[in-house]
Design a protein around this nucleic acid. Structure first.
Lengths: 336, 336
DNA sequence: CGCCCTAGGTTTTACGTATAACGTGCGCTT
DNA sequence: AAGCGCACGTTATACGTAAAACCTAGGGCG
């Protein structure tokens, strides 16, 4: 309708309502009580509605020196896990008038792209997964309020951390497989340098250390179904007695083990027990359904966002790891 | 190091380099040739580096009236498909100095949340999937440059569209199943009102219309593995002759059909052929591997971004649908 | 009656950047 | 020798908003 192609500003609203720009700002910012009469306030709101006024966020951000926008840095977008993290963080953020912008460290784009160049929005703070290794150095350089997800609490140099109790998950897996009678394990580990994966290896080894007659070999693989197939195939056809159970760092790796097993003629769970970690939708789509550790991704995101809000407000973030739970399904059975 | 807690501004850099703020802006904006001596330019750059200067994006956006930031609106984050779209769009955007912000219309957050409140960044334009129905009305209201993904070219009211050639994909599926000898079909359709799904139904019906002795029934399901199971189960155990082939609107639905078939004691592909659409990683993780239509999600995202750039620059967006391709795998065979 | 307080505004300023408009010397041309 | 353009800058201004500081009239109170 408007002739001019530019968007209406608060000044246009002021003119339409017959008041000053300051009055518009007060009314629309809900700070008018005792400063503007109810009638005038209503006139301003009406004018704003008529003109389709939307505040210019760049101007507001500049004025206020903050953006109510937070960056969530994730390693990649291809798993539903981080989708859940985003959903949870976004929900909490919305409750506090914040927005969340996603920075998936994109595969195929140059290695060290600057997240802050990509998310052109100015930022109040950052939540970063420890898996997004490339981005981390850039983040440190910004000196922004930072919350790390699944990162070494000791090595985070003061940044707040929110962690899943992965160690407990691995303990539950080990317990379950030991009680079924397994003794020879293969640990199919993620090929990504990150504290959260180191924990898995360490905890598995430590849990098995006390049990006589156990052995565990390790293979490494990129985190994808197709990527895991060759690694699993090699490890399962290596000389010497074959492992009877494969503990995977991730459900995707477990799906790769299924494929490898099919190609080797091994049947799950009769010839081989398999466990995953995540409980993706995939876990119940494959046959047999996967015994895995359920991670509550949304709660993870919520806690991350809450921690960041706490940091922004100078409070102490809530402590304590997020509990996880073994889900027993058809991919594990006693060894033959 | 710096005592003051606030970030250095271009004025601080100017002072450190002994020049005016304008000179800093010229040098750092790479517009200094013929205006500033090489020596001075170097001094400015050095000062900026020493102070760790980063331009305030809010101020720049306000000044320039544009943000080089684009919003990508997707229905949800849970499928790797839109992850690919994001990756492609992001790559092209980066080549042109743009950033992409993601707005996944989040499940579980109130129904009609305003994407522009969530992405607090000001925006130059929007790329929106036609599946993100809730968000669309809000987008229209903004009068921002808009590119629609997989949307009715006729009904898009002037907005540019970039489409996958889904109709051709469905034709290839129908052709494949007909040539195997199938005549009774079940169409497991997505329970989402969107042009891209209407196309699937229409095209399937139209392709089968010319072939005598064919029949197709339709069942609807939400787009998720678990959601598809009851719908598939009901449709496959309905009275009357059972369909010999199930055409699914999405790979996730196909995975649900696998589960339903297992529970009904039907074997794939002996008792039932199944096809999907997307070619997710899931497609080769399930057994038998899924015959499906491969969509090039990254190319889709790239084309979407290119179209938006064209709109922003007043050019005509490139036309033509993106080709898709049937991938024959183990889930389809002649009916018994 | 003089004063202050309050309601109901307005004027002004600052946020940090990009750039248009405006100097200034100096060397070169004619 | 007058002038003119070029090299090298600087000064001033605008973007749109939020909010501090300021103004004014009227009523209540001592």
């Amino acid at each position: 309708m408007a002739r001019g192609s530019t968007r209406p500003t608060s000044r246009d609203v002021a003119q339409a309502a017959g008041v000053s720009q300051a009055a518009v700002s007060l009314v629309l910012g809900d700070k008018w009580r005792g400063r503007v009469s109810a009638a005038t306030a209503e006139r301003v709101r009406e004018a704003a509605r008529d003109l389709g006024y939307r505040p210019n966020l760049a101007a507001r951000n500049l004025r206020l020196g903050r953006t109510r926008t937070v960056l969530l840095v994730v390693p990649a977008l291809t798993t539903e896990f981080f989708a859940g993290v985003y959903t949870g963080a976004s929900r909490v953020a919305a409750e506090h008038g914040f927005g969340v912008v996603l920075y998936p460290s994109p595969e195929g784009i140059g290695p060290a792209r600057d997240p802050f160049a990509s998310a052109q929005a100015a930022l109040d703070g950052v939540i970063a997964s420890s898996m997004a290794a490339d981005a981390l150095t850039a983040i440190r350089g910004e000196a922004l309020p930072l919350v790390m997800l699944d990162s070494d609490p000791a090595g985070s140099l003061g940044a707040a951390t929110v962690n899943l109790d992965i160690a407990d998950g691995v303990r539950q897996v080990a317990e379950h497989l030991l009680s079924l009678g397994h003794r020879r394990f293969l640990h199919l580990a993620a090929d990504v340098p990150s504290w959260t994966f180191e924990v898995r290896s360490r905890e598995l080894a430590s849990r098995l250390a006390g049990v006589p007659g156990t052995s565990v070999s390790t293979a490494r693989s990129p985190i994808s179904i197709e990527g895991a197939v060759p690694a699993a195939q090699a490890a399962l056809s290596a000389p010497g007695p074959r492992p009877t159970a494969v503990v995977c760092d991730d459900d995707l790796l477990a799906a790769g083990v299924y494929k490898a097993a099919r190609q080797l003629g091994l049947r799950i769970p009769d010839d081989l027990s398999v466990t995953g970690l995540d409980d993706l939708a995939l876990a119940t789509a494959i046959d047999p359904e996967l015994t895995t550790v359920r991670l509550d991704a949304e709660l993870f995101g919520e806690r991350g966002m809450r921690a960041l809000l706490a940091v922004l407000e100078g409070r102490e973030p809530e402590g304590g790891d997020i509990p996880v739970r073994l889900v027993e399904r058809g991919s594990t059975a006693p060894p033959r």
